[in-house]
């Protein structure tokens, strides 16, 4: 594998720093499409570099993974990465069963798990009390489910995602530190239209 520019770091808690994880997963992405759940994951993918292949969500809590499924089924030759938070994933946890049954090889779901609802005052989520998302994904029938805690495990996850050996589910334990906002465009019609154009060219607007 080529040398990566991103250094995957850990914080004072010893846990992974979320923006370095996201930057690493998205480096040299080769056209990979990325949907990010509302809140901090949307700011994280924007901090890594806003682009038409990014769809940062401002709402639709609980829907990110299913959006990834619809996109992955529509574009089987493209890799699709959903990056979301533990609270957002818990709200749509049944979608893991739906996704497992469809078995999309080009879909990966990465949950950045800080064990808190970050946008609403850092209240604890169920993962803080031991709920094991990777085990739930495994139980749903997703073949490659990982608990990721170290930079080396992030690199291995990145290789698997970029290889397209999905469906992949990863629960990445991250530092809970709140970071400065890096906001993407808020007009959501632009967000969808730019991704459609990145995939289909100008013909996207004539469908």
């Amino acid at each position: 594998m080529a040398q990566m520019n991103t250094k995957i770091e850990t914080g004072a808690t010893g846990k992974l720093l979320r923006r370095t994880v996201v930057a690493a997963l998205l480096e040299d992405r080769a056209g990979m499409l990325c949907i990010a759940g509302l809140g901090a994951p949307a700011w994280d993918i924007t901090a890594a570099g806003d682009c038409p292949e990014n769809l940062p969500l401002w709402g639709g809590m609980g829907g990110a993974a299913m959006m990834g499924l619809g996109l992955a089924l529509a574009q089987p030759e493209r890799k699709v990465l959903v990056i979301t938070g533990d609270g957002e994933m818990l709200m749509g946890i049944g979608s893991l069963a739906t996704i497992a049954v469809q078995h999309p090889k080009n879909l990966s779901i990465v949950v950045l798990d800080n064990e808190h609802y970050g946008e609403t005052g850092m209240q604890e989520t169920h993962t803080h009390h031991g709920v094991d998302l990777a085990a739930m994904a495994k139980g749903a029938g997703i073949g490659d489910c990982r608990l990721v805690k170290t930079p080396a495990e992030v690199l291995a996850l990145r290789s698997a995602i970029h290889a397209g050996a999905g469906p992949i589910f990863a629960q990445v334990k991250i530092d809970e530190q709140t970071l400065p906002l890096v906001l993407p465009p808020r007009e959501a019609s632009i967000l969808q239209a730019r991704m459609r154009e990145a995939i289909m060219g100008k013909a996207a607007h004539l469908q």
Binding site: L33, I35, L55, G60, G62, G63, A64, A65, M66, M67, G68, L69, G70, L71, A72, L73, A74, Q75, R78, G92, G94, S95, A97, T98, V101, Q102, Q192, M195, R196, I199, M200, A204, Q207
Partner: peptide
């Protein structure tokens, strides 16, 4: 054909489908 665990999954899925041109 995608059977859902709850109907709201379909809203997200069809949004993703449209992103991908289906």
């Amino acid at each position: 054909v995608v059977t859902l665990t709850t109907e709201e999954e379909g809203i997200g899925m069809l949004f993703g489908a449209w992103l991908g041109g289906e």
